[in-house]
Write a protein that binds this DNA or RNA. Structure first.
Length: 624
DNA sequence: GCCGTTTTCGGCCCGACTGTTTTCAGTCG
């Protein structure tokens, strides 16, 4: 059995707790959290759960300990505590020190710091390290190839405290005399800086969604607010979000605008007028609020949802019919008289179109399909009957089997697969015995949860696809699983031919049913592997192997464009959470949005199928 | 700093790769 360089559970397997990147935040370009917070109020500038605030704080503390050369095990303990708190199902703000210490990985010292944080708004130990290390130094560790030691050396020796200063120093050849830095390192760092900068100022979708839902919730309660919704790229469920567009229908905009600028997490008001106000949150996310009259709601929502390309097409359609479409309504071009504007359905209908789901509005054929009357009936979260890729604390998950299963049952699933890592992920210490013992527990729990206690449990594994395409166990052992997901976790730099052969070979394994996170990209941090995806898609179609749409906001892998291509090969898909903790199960919504952007119907997605049909699919046999 | 005992301190997911420090530290997955 091969052993290769492995994907870190810190980073990969436990896709970090929402809001708690170990690099500091959930921006594509990580920025450290440096603000403190007054007692009894939300962490300024953020709208995260209290767990996420605390997780981000401890992740930062762990980084600062590493950078200052502190005890590595202490740093690891805080990283672990950050993950544990981020993935904990209950809000930590409501727990006392005793309750906190019941969370695995949280001891007396961490519990005291959590209490201190909610009492004083800051933690003195963290503040002391912040005072010693500028925020920019921590940000240096976000550059691939730069860890805490090198970042600290750069700061101590050359006073470098930001990514820009680092780039300048390299160009000025100031790193040349530094011990441990050679020309290859310089090259590597410059490349890493490019990667960081190319991600731009966009945030991951879950960060944007948390903020948007909080703002919509707050503004909906303001007197005179008739309707409130988010629009823009978030409504279209794009994988990253540049800024938020929030729309309100009201007769009088003043109270809503005032409430908006006074929201606790708004740190800067960029523009303030009667129809449009722009602000920035403490996370650096720009939010535009537009207030329109209630009768313009539909036209405004259509206009601000976009995309730009989709809007151009709809306006062209209007022009050809002697109409003019704007955010205020659909008007007669000659008389200027309003034709329709109240709902999106009205607007689309007058243009000769059915209502087009926002996830399709990218000018990728949706206008033509609408005109023909054959828009797809998109898969929705309600169609999902089960999750087929999840972890427990047997490997790198945070919650025990029983908790994950109970949480899945709460979601109303008809079936649920437990897929912990196989032994090739060496650090997981998986053995045949441990896996078989888990199977016994899964069998014992089967049918004891869910509606009418009818939720069925599938025992599976997430296998590692080795560089040669082999997986963790021989056929005889694999045959005992109900379902196997197989994923690439290492050797990302193989050439195109080798990578393609590797994944195709995994597809040809009769016991591999789903290819997990097929491109292994991590948004803003790691590019997709260089495989011939069309060859992979063809192999999936030929062998009856499903492609995963991994719903974790860091991954969203496959991407929408790839899904569109794969679909043409006749591939089936599995939309999975890859949950490593109870809260991660809810990430499925982002996978569904991505599937919709790939034009998928429920029939394309195997985990919408009844269990009997799913089981038929899983009876993939050699030579098929 | 946490945890689990070996009940009072020792071990803590592991291995590969890279560049440069010629013997290994740092970083990553």
């Amino acid at each position: 059995m091969r052993r290769g360089s492995q994907d870190s559970p810190d980073e990969r397997t436990a896709p970090r707790p929402q809001g708690a990147d170990r690099r500091g935040s959930r921006r594509c370009v990580p920025v450290p959290v440096t603000t403190a917070c007054a007692p009894g109020r939300a962490y300024p500038g953020t709208v995260a759960r209290s767990n996420d605030e605390v997780a981000a704080l401890f992740a930062e503390y762990a980084d600062l300990i590493s950078i200052t050369g502190g005890d590595a095990f202490k740093a690891r303990a805080y990283e672990k505590a950050a993950r544990a708190i981020g993935g904990h199902h209950a809000e930590v703000s409501g727990l006392d020190a005793k309750g906190l210490q019941e969370i695995p990985g949280v001891g007396r010292s961490v519990a005291e710091k959590v209490v201190e944080y909610f009492r004083d708004g800051s933690v003195s130990a963290v503040e002391e390290l912040r005072a010693r290390i500028p925020a920019g130094v921590r940000r240096l560790t976000a550059v691939p190839g730069l860890g805490p030691k090198k970042a600290h050396a750069l700061y101590e020796e050359l006073g470098i405290a930001s990514v820009d200063e680092l780039a300048d120093a390299i160009h000025a050849e100031r790193l040349r005399d530094l011990k441990g830095f050679g020309p290859r390192t310089e090259e590597r760092i410059l490349h890493g800086i490019d990667l960081l900068r190319s991600a731009g100022d966009r945030v991951l979708i879950d960060v944007a969604m948390d903020t948007a839902e909080t703002i919509v919730g707050a503004l909906s309660g303001v007197t005179g607010c008739r309707r409130c919704a988010y629009a823009g790229s978030l409504r279209r469920v794009r994988e990253t979000i540049g800024d938020l567009d929030v729309l309100v229908a009201a007769e009088d905009s003043a109270p809503v605008m005032r409430a908006f600028t006074e929201l606790p997490y708004v740190t800067e008001v960029i523009a303030h007028g009667p129809t449009k106000t722009s602000v920035r949150t403490g996370e650096g996310l720009a939010v535009d609020l537009r207030v329109v009259r209630p009768e313009s709601w539909g036209a405004a929502l259509q206009y601000f949802t976009g995309s730009k390309a989709h809007n151009i097409r709809t306006r062209e359609l209007a022009v050809r019919q002697g109409l003019k479409l704007s955010e205020y309504g659909l008007f007669d071009a000659e008389s200027g008289e309003l034709v329709v504007s109240r709902t999106e359905e009205d607007v689309y209908a007058r243009l000769g179109l059915p209502w087009i789901p926002p996830t399709l509005r990218e000018d990728r054929g949706e206008i033509e399909a609408g005109l023909r009357g054959d828009l797809p009936v998109l898969v929705t979260e309600d169609d999902i009957r089960g999750d087929l890729h999840t972890h427990t604390d047997l490997t790198d998950g945070l919650a025990p089997l029983e908790e994950m299963v109970a949480a899945a049952a709460e979601r109303g699933y008809a079936y649920y697969a437990v897929t912990d890592h196989g032994p090739d992920m060496a650090m997981q210490r998986m053995t045949d015995e441990r896996m078989l013992a888990q199977r016994e527990r899964v069998r014992a729990l089967d049918g004891r949860y869910g509606r009418g206690r009818g939720m069925r449990l599938l025992h599976g594994a997430e296998l590692n696809i080795a560089p040669d395409g082999e997986v963790d166990w021989p056929a005889a052992f694999l045959a005992g699983f109900d379902l196997c997901v197989a994923s690439v976790h290492s050797h990302f730099e193989q050439d195109r031919e080798a990578l393609t052969r590797r994944i195709v070979r995994a597809c040809e394994n009769p016991y591999v049913h789903v290819i997990g996170h097929p491109t292994t990209r991590v948004i803003g941090r790691r590019p997709a592997v260089d495989a011939d995806l069309d060859a992979v898609f063809a192999a999936c179609a030929r062998t009856g192997t499903a492609l995963e749409i991994n719903a974790h906001p860091d991954r969203l892998d496959l991407r929408d464009e790839d899904i569109l291509r794969a679909r043409r090969h006749g591939v089936k898909f599995a939309v999975d959470s890859d949950a490593h903790a109870v809260p991660h199960l809810a990430n499925l919504r982002y996978g569904i949005g991505t599937a919709q952007r790939g034009w998928l119907t429920a029939d394309d997605v195997i985990n919408t199928w009844p269990l009997t049909r799913l089981r038929r699919f899983l009876r993939k046999r050699p030579g098929r």
